[in-house]
């Protein structure tokens, strides 16, 4: 290809008609370097960010969860792995690993990390089990359960939350979690019976269909309290026709008595 150079007074038509000029490869080099630099710094930044959150998660597990007596290895592993900061609204990301629930809109919250861990440990998830969750919310509890190797089916009554959680779970690699937008009262008969049912959005009654869909010997766990203060966790255990409950405390037992 014949070399040519820009000539003063060259018309537009001429430029279009003339053969494409190839710039010396050396000229691309700065751009390529800049791009690579950007790529590496970007990657490095992303890695650094991931490390920061990983550290925050480890600290959360150490100080909020293990210290309060959660010891189930599968639960602890799950809590260490799931990026909680990607399940909270953007404005709450800096607080994602704080020891408290956070608002996620529609009057709903993402539970305090310890409560999520406690509920997970209580239902004793084992690989190949099927667990139904009522109240997907942000999808965090479903992701934690999925990390333990169980099949998770989750129902959310608020369509917007269901849509967002479904997309988020898929994006973060929890595509196996099946999300349904609908009324949790009826459960999800198609996949019943369940080894465990986790009700994160509790109502003042326990829906009879859920009890039917719970396996004999299965466990259902329900947090009881207001959006920002869980009082107790109720465990429902089904043994044939005789279903019993157990009220568990999220805090260490100490008498509410003062020495006078």
């Amino acid at each position: 290809m014949k070399d040519s150079s820009f000539m003063p007074g060259t018309s537009a038509a001429n430029i279009e008609n003339r053969p494409q000029r190839v710039l010396p490869k050396i000229l691309f080099l700065p751009f390529a370097l800049a791009f690579l630099l950007l790529l590496f710094t970007g990657n490095a930044l992303a890695e650094e960010e991931a490390l920061i959150y990983k550290n925050a998660r480890d600290r959360m597990v150490r100080t909020q969860i293990k210290s309060r007596g959660i010891s189930d290895p599968a639960t602890l592993r799950a809590m260490e792995s799931v990026p909680r900061h990607l399940f909270v609204p953007e404005t709450s990301v800096p607080d994602a690993y704080d020891d408290r629930p956070l608002p996620i809109g529609y009057g709903q919250t993402i539970s305090q990390p310890y409560i999520v861990a406690y509920m997970t440990e209580i239902v004793q998830p084992k690989p190949q089990q099927r667990i139904l969750e009522i109240g997907t919310g942000s999808g965090y509890q479903a992701a934690i359960l999925a990390e333990t190797g169980v099949s998770v089916y989750t129902i959310e009554i608020i369509p917007e939350l269901a849509k967002n959680a479904s997309e988020r779970l898929r994006r973060l690699g929890y595509g196996r979690v099946q999300v349904k937008s609908g009324d949790g009262y009826f459960g999800w008969e198609k996949h019943a019976p369940y080894d465990a049912i986790v009700v994160t959005a509790a109502a003042e009654y326990i829906p009879p269909p859920l009890l039917v869909q719970l396996k004999d010997g299965g466990r259902m766990v329900i947090p009881v309290g207001s959006p920002f203060f869980v009082q107790t966790l109720m465990l429902v255990e089904k043994h044939g026709k005789e279903t019993g409950t157990r009220s568990l405390m999220p805090v260490r037992f100490v008498p509410f008595r003062r020495a006078e």
Binding site: G244, T245, R246, S247
Partner: peptide, 8 residues
């Protein structure tokens, strides 16, 4: 039927 962890 309904057990309490804290029986106080």
């Amino acid at each position: 039927y309904n057990l309490l962890e804290d029986r106080s």
